[in-house]
Every structure is written in structure tokens, then in C-alpha cells.
Design a protein around this nucleic acid. Structure first.
Lengths: 252, 252
DNA sequence: AGCGCTTCAATTGCATGCAGTTTGGCTCTC
DNA sequence: GAGAGCCAAACTGCATGCAATTGAAGCGCT
């Protein structure tokens, strides 16, 4: 379902694009968690292509910010910092305000029907896993972007939405999707009515609240990761056996 | 000069990145015009690397929208439509408003000095070629983005600015940079003063006027290219010999 | 001459191979 | 038993080679 949401920007049917799409989906559905390793060999074998192609696909995804590529090291699914997550949402808000501004009052009946159908699908998926809900919610926004007929806007909204998706899997708590679905419906209604200012405000509030629900308090770990996180625990074991830090730290 | 404006997002020092930077620069300085062919062999030979690497670089630039990659065909420098150019500027306006919003009143003296130095460089370059002026003007904006310390924002602003650069070379008339330089100075001043609303307004107006100066009338060719452009002429030759369409159409 | 067909050089799509780097275990020592 | 150092396996960086596709010149036909 919702196959029409696939990015068509220079993504035809060559093997690289296929792998990109597969990995992208695996990432945003959290089948691949942030930090998961992505060895070129393994990808190549899994998708039945050579390492060259897998490598190229990783390059593309790195350009989108979904994977991190360190020289001579295994590529990993990106692990955005909290601040980066917040920045991504800020950018997303502006981009999507632009989307709805362009769309307000300009949607055909068919398009509105399509949007409603999508939200219905979201509704139906409420019983399923969080991963699917998050993906559908994201695809709603990408569907909106597509309706602007602006390839550039589609590209940026898609990318930043995927990124946000990724951060949700990192920083989100159990998640409640219901209100988000209602907000989607409200946005559709305002778009149909053609009230640009209103729908921009709705979109802003919608994304802002998603961000605030998801990105819980900065958890003063403005330093990097793990070492800071473990700092408080370290106190409790000073006299006991010390946790093998190098082993753990390597994971990141 | 202005080497610090180089995008550092997963671009360290591997050969692919080097080639990307070189091509990017060649494109925005119009050494490579839109539509110019970029055969993998030629690039590889020119930069002393294998075709694999050249290919990978082209993939990256395609992801940035600077080159177009058609299956089994030679890659070419992107030729954005007029509408895409306008869309790019619209997106850019929003992104850069975000940049100056974050920056207003938060710049160190050193940063302000750096900005002023850059504008001075722009001033000095006024006698030179348009290409250099345009590049410097673009790099001013990228420099601003860097100061937000938000890698994502840097990436998007850079990309969209490069794209706009590209469109300037397509649709711009001879160009007068002087007012742009003054506007840059005004923006710095407002940033230093810390008036967020004012500087956002300035940036908006600045980019909007650049876009309007550059993107001259839509030249009613909202359809695709050539075939539509030639449509009106076709009427006049219905009874005469027909223009050799395939020959001309192939050029694009 | 103008038009279509055939053929060949140019070019891409992709896999494989080799060299250099990193990783993680293993041993050897204290 | 803990820690430093070494070594093999794993992995990446890159070049090269081969098959497939494309573009355009050459050729014959009307």
C-alpha cells in the first residue's frame, strides 16, 4: 500500500535504487536500529549484487543522512544526536509549512480522497506495530509533498521526514499515534477549505507537538554518548568490579 | 580563499569527495554549463582515478541535484526548469530565514569579523568575472549556515544554494551584484544587533529580490521542453516541409 | 537528395580481484 | 587473573575486465 509515495527523483529501477529503497524502509521501520552495522559484503550477498553496488547504495543513503560512512570502517545506520534531531524537526516544520501553503485550496477532489484514504489506512494500522504506524504517518507527509509537483520539495521533505523517523526510533517513548491521526484529518480539512494561514499553523503545531512528544528532555547528555550516559552508574561500582567500558564503548 | 566553507558532511578526503568538490565548483562557476556531458571515463582520466570512483562521485552529485543521471546515458549537468528554479528559491528563503533566526544576536565578534571579511572579498571581486561573484555570494550564505553549528542545516542550505547558483547561470541576465553586497552587509548588521524579526525580513527580501532579478519572466514554456516550445511554430509549417524534430530533440 | 536499416565505436552497468586498514581474539608475560 | 602485544580474519578502497546498451556514422533503397 501507498506505493505511490516512493521517491521518483532519479530513482528508476537500477539495482542501486532498489537497495536504497529496501534499506531506507528497513531503517524507518526500525528493523535496522540506529548504530546497526551495514557491511558491504553482507548487503551485497543479501540483495544478490556485488559489493560495488552495495557500496554505491550506502553512499546514496549517506548523502541522505540515513547512514554514517566512516573511512575504512563498517557503515552504520545513522545515530543523530538529540540536537540534530531537534534541528531536523525545525527544518521539517518550515518545509512542510511551505508544502501546505502551496497546496491550500488547490487540491482536486481526487487528491483529497487519496489523502483521506491514506489516513484511513493509518487508522486501520493503529492496532499494529509502532513501526508501521510511524511509517504511515511519515508517508502521509510525503504524499502531501508529492502533490505540490515540486520535485525539489519532495526530495527535501522526504529526506528530512525519514531522518525524523529515524530519530523517533531513538528518542521516542512508547508513542501514541491517535492524536497525530486526528491532526492529519484536520490538516486535510483545512487544505480543502483553502485557508492557507490556518493550515500552516496546523502543520506547524502538528509537527512541533510530534517533536515534543518524541524528543523527550535533553537528558543532559550534551556530550557524546555512552561514556556520559554511564557516568552516574559508574559511581555505584567504584568499589566493585569495574564495568568493561572498552567493550561497551566500542558498540557505538 | 573561503576554504572553510567546504561541506564537511561525510566528506573527508577520499577520492570521491575530492572529485565531488571539484565538479561542484566547476558547475557553480559555470565552467561546466547546464547540459554539459560528464562521461565517466573522461572524469576518471581527468582526475586520475578509475571509472568506479568517477561514477560514485556522479551519484553523489545527482543526489544533490547538480547532475542528472539517465540510465545507460551519459550524465549531464542538471538543467532545472524555470519552475524548479523558483521552487528552489522558495525553499532557500525558508531555510535561510531559519539560519538567521538561530543566529540573530548569537554571533561572536570573531564570527562577525569573518563575515565582514567575506563581504570585503566579495567587494574586491566585483571587478572580476560574474562566475566568481556568484560563487562568493553563495559562499556567504553557506558561511552563515555553518555558524549555526547544525550539520543538517548546513547540508540543506549548501545544496539548495548550489542549485540556485546553477539556475542563475541558466536564467540570469548579465547580473549586477552590487546591491546584493549591500544587502549582505545589512544582514550582518542586523545579526549583530540581534533583531531576529528584522534580519529574517532582510534575508527574505534579499533572496526574493535575487530570485526576481535572476529568474526573468516565465517565458510561457511551462510544458517540458523543445516539443512544447516548438509547438506554435509547427502550425506554420503544416503545409510546408516539417522541421527535423528528432535531430533537435536529441540535444536535450 | 531524402529516408530507413545495419553496423560499430562509445559508453554505461556490474562483478571480480588485489592491496591496505581495522577488528577482535589469542598468547605471552607479569 | 589482568594487561600489553601480536596475528589472522574481516572489511574497505580502488582498479580492471566483460557484457549490454546506446548513439551515430555508413550504406543501400526510393
Amino acid at each position: 500500500m501507498a506505493a505511490h509515495v516512493s521517491s521518483k527523483t532519479s530513482e528508476s529501477s537500477d539495482k542501486v535504487s532498489v537497495i536504497c529503497r529496501a534499506l531506507r524502509r528497513a531503517i524507518i521501520e526500525q528493523a535496522l536500529e540506529p548504530g546497526a552495522k551495514l557491511p558491504e559484503d553482507a548487503l551485497g550477498e543479501r540483495f544478490g549484487v556485488s559489493r560495488t553496488i552495495a557500496r554505491h547504495a550506502l553512499g546514496q543513503l549517506a548523502a541522505e543522512g540515513l547512514v554514517e560512512l566512516r573511512r575504512n570502517r563498517i557503515a552504520v545506520v545513522a545515530t543523530p544526536s538529540w540536537q540534530e534531531a531537534r534541528d531536523a524537526f525545525d527544518i521539517r516544520i518550515e518545509l512542510e509549512r511551505l508544502v501546505v501553503r502551496q497546496l491550500a485550496g488547490k487540491l482536486t477532489k481526487a487528491q483529497i480522497a487519496e489523502l483521506n484514504a491514506h489516513v484511513d489506512a493509518e487508522d486501520r494500522a493503529r492496532g499494529g506495530t509502532d513501526a508501521v504506524s510511524i511509517r504511515l504517518a511519515t508517508e502521509f507527509h510525503i504524499l502531501l509533498a508529492h502533490m505540490t509537483n515540486s520535485p525539489i520539495l519532495v526530495r527535501y521533505v522526504s529526506e528530512v521526514a525519514y531522518r525524523c523517523c529515524l530519530t523517533l526510533s531513538l528518542y521516542s517513548r512508547p508513542h501514541s499515534t491517535e492524536c497525530a491521526i486526528n491532526e492529519h484529518r484536520a490538516i486535510i480539512a483545512a487544505l480543502a477549505k483553502g485557508d492557507a494561514a490556518k493550515v500552516m499553523e496546523l502543520m506547524h503545531h502538528h509537527l512541533d507537538s510530534v517533536a515534543n512528544r518524541a524528543l523527550v528532555a535533553p537528558t543532559p547528555q550534551r556530550g557524546r554518548d555512552l561514556l556520559d550516559i554511564l557516568a552516574p552508574y559508574a559511581d555505584e561500582v567504584t568499589s566493585n568490579r569495574v564495568i568493561k567500558l572498552p567493550k561497551l564503548a566500542r558498540r557505538s
